[in-house]
Protein backbone atom coordinates (compact mmCIF):
# COMPACT_ATOMS: atom_id res chain seq x y z
CA UNK A 1 0.00 0.00 0.00
CA UNK A 2 1.14 3.49 -0.71
CA UNK A 3 2.21 5.67 2.18
CA UNK A 4 0.13 8.46 0.75
CA UNK A 5 -3.54 7.97 1.31
CA UNK A 6 -4.97 6.44 -1.82
CA UNK A 7 -6.68 9.19 -3.79
CA UNK A 8 -10.11 7.86 -4.44
CA UNK A 9 -10.70 6.86 -8.04
CA UNK A 10 -9.29 8.66 -11.02
CA UNK A 11 -11.94 7.09 -13.20
CA UNK A 12 -14.68 9.64 -13.92
CA UNK A 13 -13.09 12.72 -15.49
CA UNK A 14 -15.49 15.32 -14.05
CA UNK A 15 -16.52 14.01 -10.70
CA UNK A 16 -16.96 16.67 -8.03
CA UNK A 17 -15.02 15.74 -4.92
CA UNK A 18 -16.26 18.73 -2.98
CA UNK A 19 -19.29 20.80 -3.76
CA UNK A 20 -20.93 23.75 -2.04
CA UNK A 21 -24.30 25.26 -2.93
CA UNK A 22 -25.69 28.64 -1.98
CA UNK A 23 -23.31 29.25 0.91
CA UNK A 24 -24.27 32.35 2.92
CA UNK A 25 -22.25 33.69 5.83
CA UNK A 26 -22.74 37.07 7.47
CA UNK A 27 -20.81 38.76 10.23
CA UNK A 28 -23.27 41.22 11.70
CA UNK A 29 -24.42 43.16 8.65
CA UNK A 30 -21.28 42.33 6.67
CA UNK A 31 -22.23 39.65 4.17
CA UNK A 32 -18.96 37.79 3.71
CA UNK A 33 -20.47 35.09 1.47
CA UNK A 34 -23.58 35.85 -0.50
CA UNK A 35 -24.82 32.53 -1.89
CA UNK A 36 -21.66 30.96 -3.24
CA UNK A 37 -21.60 27.82 -5.38
CA UNK A 38 -18.33 25.98 -5.53
CA UNK A 39 -17.09 22.72 -6.92
CA UNK A 40 -13.75 20.99 -6.83
CA UNK A 41 -13.23 18.30 -9.43
CA UNK A 42 -11.27 15.12 -8.98
CA UNK A 43 -7.59 15.46 -9.76
CA UNK A 44 -7.48 19.21 -10.33
CA UNK A 45 -5.73 22.20 -8.85
CA UNK A 46 -8.39 24.85 -8.39
CA UNK A 47 -7.03 28.32 -7.67
CA UNK A 48 -9.23 30.69 -5.69
CA UNK A 49 -8.52 34.35 -6.37
CA UNK A 50 -10.17 37.61 -5.44
CA UNK A 51 -9.49 41.04 -4.02
CA UNK A 52 -8.97 41.58 -0.30
CA UNK A 53 -12.26 41.06 1.49
CA UNK A 54 -13.82 39.18 -1.43
CA UNK A 55 -14.57 36.27 0.88
CA UNK A 56 -11.87 33.75 -0.06
CA UNK A 57 -10.82 32.93 3.50
CA UNK A 58 -14.40 32.73 4.73
CA UNK A 59 -15.32 30.35 1.91
CA UNK A 60 -12.34 28.14 2.68
CA UNK A 61 -13.19 28.18 6.38
CA UNK A 62 -16.68 26.90 5.68
CA UNK A 63 -15.14 24.08 3.64
CA UNK A 64 -12.70 23.12 6.42
CA UNK A 65 -15.24 23.35 9.21
CA UNK A 66 -13.61 26.37 10.83
CA UNK A 67 -16.74 28.43 10.13
CA UNK A 68 -20.30 27.12 10.03
CA UNK A 69 -22.27 28.80 7.22
CA UNK A 70 -25.63 30.49 7.91
CA UNK A 71 -27.19 28.56 5.06
CA UNK A 72 -26.27 26.47 2.06
CA UNK A 73 -25.06 22.91 1.78
CA UNK A 74 -21.72 21.19 1.40
CA UNK A 75 -21.33 17.85 -0.30
CA UNK A 76 -18.28 15.66 -0.01
CA UNK A 77 -18.24 13.01 -2.74
CA UNK A 78 -21.87 13.82 -3.34
CA UNK A 79 -22.83 13.26 0.27
CA UNK A 80 -24.10 16.15 2.42
CA UNK A 81 -21.77 16.96 5.32
CA UNK A 82 -22.08 19.31 8.29
CA UNK A 83 -18.66 20.00 9.75
CA UNK A 84 -18.77 21.03 13.40
CA UNK A 85 -15.11 21.98 13.47
CA UNK A 86 -11.77 21.62 11.70
CA UNK A 87 -11.14 18.21 13.29
CA UNK A 88 -14.42 17.03 11.85
CA UNK A 89 -13.34 17.98 8.33
CA UNK A 90 -9.97 16.34 8.90
CA UNK A 91 -11.58 13.09 9.94
CA UNK A 92 -13.45 13.20 6.64
CA UNK A 93 -10.20 13.45 4.68
CA UNK A 94 -9.80 17.21 4.17
CA UNK A 95 -6.40 18.60 5.13
CA UNK A 96 -5.42 22.27 5.30
CA UNK A 97 -2.05 23.97 4.89
CA UNK A 98 -1.67 27.43 6.38
CA UNK A 99 0.36 30.40 5.29
CA UNK A 100 2.53 30.56 8.38
CA UNK A 101 4.74 27.58 8.91
CA UNK A 102 2.71 25.29 11.11
CA UNK A 103 5.62 23.12 12.20
CA UNK A 104 7.43 22.50 15.47
CA UNK A 105 10.99 23.61 14.64
CA UNK A 106 12.81 21.68 17.37
CA UNK A 107 11.25 18.37 16.33
CA UNK A 108 12.57 16.30 13.47
CA UNK A 109 10.85 15.71 10.15
CA UNK A 110 9.02 12.45 11.01
CA UNK A 111 7.78 13.96 14.30
CA UNK A 112 6.38 16.91 12.41
CA UNK A 113 4.88 14.79 9.69
CA UNK A 114 3.05 12.64 12.22
CA UNK A 115 2.38 15.41 14.75
CA UNK A 116 -0.95 14.74 16.42
CA UNK A 117 -1.24 11.40 14.59
CA UNK A 118 1.78 9.55 15.90
CA UNK A 119 1.98 5.84 15.19
CA UNK A 120 2.11 3.46 18.13
CA UNK A 121 4.03 0.22 18.33
CA UNK A 122 2.13 -2.95 17.52
CA UNK A 123 0.91 -5.20 20.32
CA UNK A 124 0.95 -4.53 24.05
CA UNK A 125 3.81 -2.03 23.78
CA UNK A 126 1.53 0.21 21.83
CA UNK A 127 -1.88 -0.51 23.32
CA UNK A 128 -0.85 -0.73 26.98
CA UNK A 129 2.42 1.22 27.18
CA UNK A 130 1.43 3.76 24.50
CA UNK A 131 4.88 3.44 22.96
CA UNK A 132 5.65 5.45 19.84
CA UNK A 133 6.77 3.50 16.81
CA UNK A 134 9.59 5.90 15.89
CA UNK A 135 11.12 3.50 13.44
CA UNK A 136 7.96 3.10 11.40
CA UNK A 137 7.27 6.85 11.45
CA UNK A 138 10.76 7.46 10.19
CA UNK A 139 10.49 4.87 7.44
CA UNK A 140 7.09 6.09 6.33
CA UNK A 141 8.23 9.71 6.38
CA UNK A 142 11.18 8.75 4.21
CA UNK A 143 8.94 6.89 1.80
CA UNK A 144 6.41 9.72 1.62
CA UNK A 145 9.11 12.26 0.86
CA UNK A 146 10.53 9.98 -1.82
CA UNK A 147 7.09 9.48 -3.38
CA UNK A 148 6.52 13.22 -3.35
CA UNK A 149 10.00 13.67 -4.86
CA UNK A 150 10.71 16.28 -2.22
CA UNK A 151 14.40 16.55 -1.50
CA UNK A 152 15.48 17.01 2.09
CA UNK A 153 18.98 16.89 3.60
CA UNK A 154 18.17 14.01 5.98
CA UNK A 155 14.93 12.68 7.31
CA UNK A 156 16.37 12.96 10.84
CA UNK A 157 17.01 16.70 10.53
CA UNK A 158 15.31 18.99 12.93
CA UNK A 159 12.92 21.17 11.01
CA UNK A 160 14.69 24.32 12.24
CA UNK A 161 17.73 23.28 10.21
CA UNK A 162 15.71 23.33 6.97
CA UNK A 163 15.15 26.26 4.64
CA UNK A 164 11.78 28.02 4.66
CA UNK A 165 10.73 26.21 1.50
CA UNK A 166 11.69 22.84 2.91
CA UNK A 167 9.79 23.59 6.12
CA UNK A 168 6.66 24.48 4.23
CA UNK A 169 7.33 21.36 2.17
CA UNK A 170 7.07 19.34 5.38
CA UNK A 171 3.73 21.00 6.19
CA UNK A 172 2.43 20.36 2.67
CA UNK A 173 3.66 16.76 2.76
CA UNK A 174 1.87 16.25 6.08
CA UNK A 175 -1.38 17.34 4.47
CA UNK A 176 -0.76 15.16 1.43
CA UNK A 177 0.04 12.09 3.50
CA UNK A 178 -3.15 12.30 5.55
CA UNK A 179 -5.65 13.80 3.12
CA UNK A 180 -7.90 11.12 1.72
CA UNK A 181 -10.11 13.51 -0.28
CA UNK A 182 -8.46 16.87 -0.87
CA UNK A 183 -5.94 19.41 0.33
CA UNK A 184 -6.72 23.07 0.89
CA UNK A 185 -3.88 25.58 0.92
CA UNK A 186 -4.35 29.16 2.06
CA UNK A 187 -1.48 31.18 0.57
CA UNK A 188 1.09 28.47 1.27
CA UNK A 189 3.95 30.38 -0.32
CA UNK A 190 3.18 33.88 0.95
CA UNK A 191 6.02 33.75 3.48
CA UNK A 192 8.58 32.33 1.04
CA UNK A 193 11.17 33.68 -1.38
CA UNK A 194 11.07 33.05 -5.12
CA UNK A 195 13.22 29.91 -5.23
CA UNK A 196 11.59 28.43 -2.16
CA UNK A 197 8.16 29.12 -3.65
CA UNK A 198 9.26 27.12 -6.69
CA UNK A 199 10.03 24.07 -4.54
CA UNK A 200 6.63 24.18 -2.88
CA UNK A 201 4.75 24.71 -6.17
CA UNK A 202 6.53 21.70 -7.61
CA UNK A 203 5.39 19.70 -4.61
CA UNK A 204 1.78 20.84 -5.07
CA UNK A 205 1.94 19.72 -8.70
CA UNK A 206 3.24 16.32 -7.66
CA UNK A 207 0.38 15.95 -5.23
CA UNK A 208 -2.15 16.77 -7.96
CA UNK A 209 -0.45 14.38 -10.37
CA UNK A 210 -0.85 11.64 -7.82
CA UNK A 211 -4.58 12.25 -8.03
CA UNK A 212 -5.30 14.32 -4.94
CA UNK A 213 -7.27 17.49 -5.75
CA UNK A 214 -5.98 20.77 -4.37
CA UNK A 215 -7.68 24.07 -3.58
CA UNK A 216 -5.07 26.81 -3.73
CA UNK A 217 -5.71 30.34 -2.51
CA UNK A 218 -3.11 32.69 -3.89
CA UNK A 219 -2.51 36.34 -4.61
CA UNK A 220 0.28 35.55 -6.98
CA UNK A 221 -1.14 35.53 -10.52
CA UNK A 222 1.93 34.06 -12.25
CA UNK A 223 1.87 31.17 -9.75
CA UNK A 224 -1.85 30.70 -10.27
CA UNK A 225 -1.45 30.58 -14.04
CA UNK A 226 1.54 28.31 -13.73
CA UNK A 227 -0.26 25.78 -11.58
CA UNK A 228 -4.05 25.92 -11.78
CA UNK A 229 -6.33 23.79 -13.91
CA UNK A 230 -9.20 26.16 -13.24
CA UNK A 231 -9.45 29.56 -11.59
CA UNK A 232 -12.31 30.40 -9.25
CA UNK A 233 -12.73 34.18 -9.12
CA UNK A 234 -14.50 35.81 -6.18
CA UNK A 235 -15.83 39.30 -5.93
CA UNK A 236 -17.82 40.91 -3.10
CA UNK A 237 -18.78 37.64 -1.47
CA UNK A 238 -19.97 36.07 -4.72
CA UNK A 239 -18.56 33.76 -7.32
CA UNK A 240 -17.74 36.10 -10.20
CA UNK A 241 -16.53 33.42 -12.62
CA UNK A 242 -14.66 30.18 -13.00
CA UNK A 243 -12.22 30.32 -15.93
CA UNK A 244 -9.48 28.24 -17.46
CA UNK A 245 -5.96 29.65 -17.59
CA UNK A 246 -5.84 28.38 -21.17
CA UNK A 247 -8.74 30.51 -22.37
CA UNK A 248 -8.18 33.59 -20.23
CA UNK A 249 -5.21 35.86 -19.65
CA UNK A 250 -4.01 37.31 -16.36
CA UNK A 251 -5.45 40.64 -17.43
CA UNK A 252 -8.86 39.00 -17.98
CA UNK A 253 -8.81 37.48 -14.52
CA UNK A 254 -7.79 40.72 -12.86
CA UNK A 255 -10.53 42.53 -14.76
CA UNK A 256 -13.16 40.07 -13.50
CA UNK A 257 -11.73 40.26 -9.96
CA UNK A 258 -11.99 44.02 -9.85
CA UNK A 259 -15.36 44.20 -11.57
CA UNK A 260 -14.04 45.97 -14.66
CA UNK A 261 -15.49 43.17 -16.74
CA UNK A 262 -18.67 41.18 -16.11
CA UNK A 263 -17.96 37.53 -16.67
CA UNK A 264 -20.43 34.94 -17.87
CA UNK A 265 -18.37 31.91 -16.99
CA UNK A 266 -19.97 31.47 -13.53
Amino acid sequence: MSVLAAPEAKAAPVRNVLEARGIVKSYGHVVALDGVDFELRAGEILAVVGDNGAGKSTLIKTLTGAVVPDSGEILLDGEPVHFKGPLDARHRGIETVYQDLAVAPALDIPSNLFLGRELLSPGLLGSLFRRLDKRRMRDEAERAMAELKFRLPSIASRVENLSGGQRQGVAVARAAVFARKLVIMDEPTAALGVRETGQVLELIRTIRDRGLPVVLISHNMPNVFDLADRIFIMRLGRRAAVVSPKSHSMADVVAIMTGAVKADGG
Binding site: P86, L87, R90, Y98, D100, L101, A102, V103, A104, P105, A106, L107, S111, L115, G116, R117, E118, L120, F129, R130, R131, L132, R174
Partner: peptide, 22 residues
Protein backbone atom coordinates in the same frame (compact mmCIF):
# COMPACT_ATOMS: atom_id res chain seq x y z
CA UNK B 1 8.49 7.28 24.11
CA UNK B 2 4.83 8.28 24.17
CA UNK B 3 2.50 10.51 22.23
CA UNK B 4 1.75 12.45 25.42
CA UNK B 5 5.39 13.41 25.81
CA UNK B 6 5.81 14.25 22.16
CA UNK B 7 2.89 16.65 22.51
CA UNK B 8 4.52 18.32 25.52
CA UNK B 9 7.47 19.16 23.28
CA UNK B 10 5.23 20.31 20.43
CA UNK B 11 3.22 22.61 22.70
CA UNK B 12 6.35 24.18 24.14
CA UNK B 13 7.86 24.50 20.71
CA UNK B 14 4.96 25.93 18.71
CA UNK B 15 1.58 25.94 20.49
CA UNK B 16 -0.20 27.24 17.39
CA UNK B 17 1.11 24.39 15.24
CA UNK B 18 0.13 21.95 17.99
CA UNK B 19 -3.40 23.34 18.03
CA UNK B 20 -3.67 23.23 14.23
CA UNK B 21 -2.78 19.53 14.08
CA UNK B 22 -5.51 18.84 16.62
Amino acid sequence: ETRWGRHVYAIGNNPEAARLVG
